[in-house]
Each structure stands twice: as structure tokens, then as C-alpha cells.
Simulated assay, not measured.
Amino acid sequence: MEHFTIPPISVPDGQEQVLLHACCAPCSTAIIEACVHSGIRPTVYFYNPNIYPETEYLLRKNECVRFCEAMGLDYIDGDYDTKAWKKHTAGYEQEPERGKRCQLCFDLRLASSAKTAAEHGFSLFATTLSSSRWKDLAQITRAGEQAADSYPGVSYWLQDWRKKGLAARKDFLVRQSDFYQQEYCGCFYSLRDSNLWRQKNNKPLIQR
């Protein structure tokens, strides 16, 4: 990856400011690098009330802040309202990954992102969630576009950040920067299901 050519990023209407919802530092690395290389200065919004437990949340948030500071970028710290998240996803505790619970989770986080964009004068927002191969891009797109519909003048910037070599670049930058790499998606239920799989396959359990 030392000879990786950073791909040009094209923003709708040639805008240079975007609110970028970040799920974690590792997923943000190649995205932010590509944006900055193309003259785009994203403001990073960390809003992930799904992350469990709070110690895990703080670890992921602090890594994201560390990366923003290293890149000289502004960031906005969202509320850690786990009660609101649990209420929003109630009744779907047994849903699998990429199921209805995940859709509701994306809806909540991107609705907050659109609201924050409107409040801070951004006409465009995006999310690093779409960089993960474990996520359903259609679910994320649906959540982003639906969130934007509630705020006139705010648009969702649809990007599949897994293309143009960015997925491999992300892995390289994470190793280079020695970022903490999480072992499960983030919520209590993903931790539960990850450990159930590990137990069945005689793997060490994730301790949190």
C-alpha cells in the first residue's frame, strides 16, 4: 500500500464542507484521507449511542478524536443516550445482523446526523458506516435519504467507501496508526451474538 494512489473524491455541487458521521476511527481513516486529498474538509460527528458498554464507547470515541486532531479536523461530540437507543430498537432484540434492528439503529443515528448538519449550516452529510463490508449498504442509504428528507436544504451524500481500493487502504492506515480495532459491531446484542458464535466454535470470548 506504500504506492497507493489516493482516488479523487467528487462532492455534489463542488462543495468543500461536509458533516461526516463517524462510527469509529478505523472506518474513518481512508475516507478522511481521500476527502482531504480532494480539498474537502469534513467535520466529524461522533454519534453512536448503540455502543456497549460505556468503556467501549469511550475507547472508540477517543480514538476517533485522536485521528481528527492528527488530521487537524473539527469534530462534534454527540450525546451518549443509550436509553433512547434501547427504546428505539425495543422489540427487536433477537434480530440478526442486517435485520430490522440494524435498520432502526441506522435510522436513529443518521436522523441525528441530518439534524446536526442543519443546525451547524451543512447542506451535505455522509457516514462512514458504508465503509464496512459487514453492513447492508441499502439499509444505510435508506436511513440517510430518509433523514435528509426531514431537513430542507440538507442532502445525504451517498458513497460506497469500499470501492477504489479504500477498503484495503483503510486496513493499511489502521495498522500504521495502531488504532484500536473492535471485535464486534458495537451494541450489546452484537456482543452477545459474537460471543455465542465464538463459544460454538471454541474461540476465546470477547471480555467487556
Rank of each mutant, 00 (worst) to 15 (best):
A138R: 12
Y52D: 01
A34W: 01
D79A: 07
R101Q: 06
P49T: 00
Y80K: 05
E54C: 06
E2F: 10
E2H: 14
S112T: 05
E93D: 13
K115Y: 04
T55V: 14
E69H: 13
K83C: 12
V174L: 03
F125S: 06
F125W: 08
G186F: 01
A126Y: 07
K170M: 12
A22V: 12
P7V: 03
P12C: 05
V174N: 00
R192A: 06
L110V: 09
K61T: 10
T5P: 05
Q94A: 11
I76K: 06
R60P: 03
E33D: 15
K200L: 01
T127R: 06
S113G: 04
Y45M: 07
E97L: 11
L158C: 14
H3F: 08
Q15W: 14
N201S: 03
G78L: 02
T55C: 10
V154M: 07
A168L: 09
C105E: 03
D107M: 08
V174M: 02
W197V: 12
A138Q: 13
S123R: 13
Q146S: 13
G99Y: 10
K163R: 14
Q207W: 12
R175V: 05
Y156L: 09
Y92P: 05
N50W: 00
D149M: 05
D160Y: 05
I140R: 05
R41I: 04
V18H: 02
W85Y: 13
P204Y: 12
I9Q: 11
F179G: 09
Y45P: 00
T43I: 06
Q181H: 10
E145A: 00
K86Q: 15
W197E: 12
S190C: 12
C24Q: 09
S28P: 01
N50P: 01
Q182F: 00
Y156K: 08
T141P: 00
A126P: 05
F125I: 06
Q94M: 07
I140G: 08
V44M: 09
D13R: 14
R162L: 00
C27T: 03
D13Y: 11
R109P: 03
L173I: 06
R109D: 00
V65H: 13
F125Q: 02
W197F: 14
L205A: 04
M71Y: 11
F4N: 01
Y189W: 15
E145M: 01
Y92L: 08
Q199P: 10
L158M: 13
R60G: 11
E54G: 02
R192H: 11
I9S: 04
C27Q: 04
C185I: 02
H120R: 04
L129N: 03
L137P: 00
C35V: 02
E97V: 04
C105I: 01
H120G: 01
P7L: 02
G121A: 10
P152V: 07
C27D: 13
R101C: 03
T29W: 05
L20I: 05
V65K: 15
A168R: 07
W197A: 10
